[in-house]
Design a protein around this nucleic acid. Structure first.
Length: 111
DNA sequence: AGTATGACATAGC
DNA sequence: AGCTATGCCATAC
């Protein structure tokens, strides 16, 4: 990784299907806990190799149109991967927010 | 080298 | 509860 952006891309690529992550969390994993903005900037320049659709803001929704098709495709893409949406039109961070590698186990309630 | 901007986040009003 | 203002890190000019 010559640039931190490369690290950011790596983190985003590490997001498993059916899960989403937030800029702040990706930034933290990339090494910049307060660089959520830097993440957004990097993702803006991110290659298609990076599933930026799995990256959302703290509200669970992307800006408006990181895709040529618009937010419409964004929603379908995540739903297609198994991510559910709330009535707010945002991804259900309460259930699909990826907290990092190894955070998938344990999962639900119960032990 | 400094200023300006950005797909965010947090605090204050 | 909603809006405004500032902070943060990185890139662009």
């Amino acid at each position: 990784m010559e640039k931190l952006s490369e690290t950011i891309y790596a983190v985003v690529r590490a997001i498993p299907p059916g899960r989403v992550s937030t800029y702040g969390r990706v930034a933290a994993m990339a090494g910049i806990p307060r660089g959520a903005r830097a993440v957004g900037y990097a993702l803006n320049r991110a290659p298609r190799d990076v599933p930026c659709q799995r990256v959302v803001n703290r509200l669970g929704g992307l800006s408006d149109a990181f895709l040529p098709t618009g937010r419409e495709t964004h929603r379908l893409l995540l739903e297609m991967e198994g991510v559910g949406f709330t009535a707010d039109g945002a991804v259900d961070l309460a259930r699909f927010l990826w907290a990092g590698p190894g955070a998938e186990r344990g999962g639900g309630e119960g032990t």
